[in-house]
Design a protein around this nucleic acid. Structure first.
Length: 219
DNA sequence: CAGTGATCATAG
DNA sequence: CTATGATCACTG
């Protein structure tokens, strides 16, 4: 598809300024009236438009380029509306995972952020694609994320998953990630027992992506 | 009214 | 179930 990252970034730049209605029309995709039942629709539209490998592979969107694609919903006041899902959290057999081999580190090593402007109540069609940018964590950013990750992973290893709330972590937080509250997955419980708990995922706080935006466009 | 905890669609 | 893509919606 793309010979190098520059070609991908160039292609993404061509989409800046388009409304979602314009992009959806180009792609021959119908626009849902609400994201209520299709929360990932915008992300999937951008994946399709840029030719990312579809499907549910536990890999980056552009494996040969080592790049992850993420849309970032931005309110018209310029602030991210939502946190950003990174990956699911390993709750079992995670003792062998180090920061260097973790999915969080892998997924966040290179991210092509695509801002999508529009307030929550704004219709989807009129939301506009902004200027994308390729992000590699700075040493300082990686340090913060790594510390959050290590604290959370230690609590998981100690059998304290259920005591971890979304308040933990400066940039990276742990939250439920499941179809519903009935979903269960095994995890380490107290005294090394195995318990069933809600699947969790790692998310980047919107306060963190807000800083990324600021560094990219206002510094 | 921001942020946490819950939830939706789809593929394998 | 897990993975992908995320936003919804209740609560403090």
């Amino acid at each position: 598809m793309y010979q190098n990252i520059d070609e991908l970034v160039h292609a993404a730049n061509q989409l800046a300024g388009l409304t979602l209605a314009e992009l959806a029309e180009r792609c021959g995709i119908m626009i849902p009236s609400s994201l209520r039942r299709e929360k990932g629709w915008i992300g999937q539209l951008l994946e399709f438009a840029l030719g990312a490998s579809a499907g549910s592979k536990p890999q980056q969107d552009f494996p040969e380029l080592g790049v992850e694609l993420k849309t970032l919903p931005i309110a018209n006041n310029g602030i991210p509306l939502e946190s950003t899902f990174v990956c699911t959290a390993p709750l079992l057999h995670q003792q062998k995972i180090t920061w260097e081999t973790s999915s969080v580190h892998h997924k966040l090593s290179a991210v092509l952020w695509i801002p999508v402007f529009g307030d929550r109540q704004q219709d989807i069609a009129s939301r506009m694609i902004g200027n994308p940018w390729l992000w590699h964590p700075t040493a300082e950013q990686e340090k913060i994320i790594r510390q959050d990750w290590e604290e959370i992973m230690e609590l998981i290893a100690l059998g304290k998953v259920e005591s971890i709330s979304a308040r933990h972590g400066e940039a990276l937080q742990l939250r439920p990630k499941a179809a519903n509250g009935q979903s269960l997955t095994p995890a380490i419980g107290g005294e090394g027992t195995i318990i069933q708990t809600r699947p969790r995922g790692f998310y980047l706080r919107s306060s963190f992506t807000r800083e990324l935006l600021h560094m990219q466009f206002y510094l």
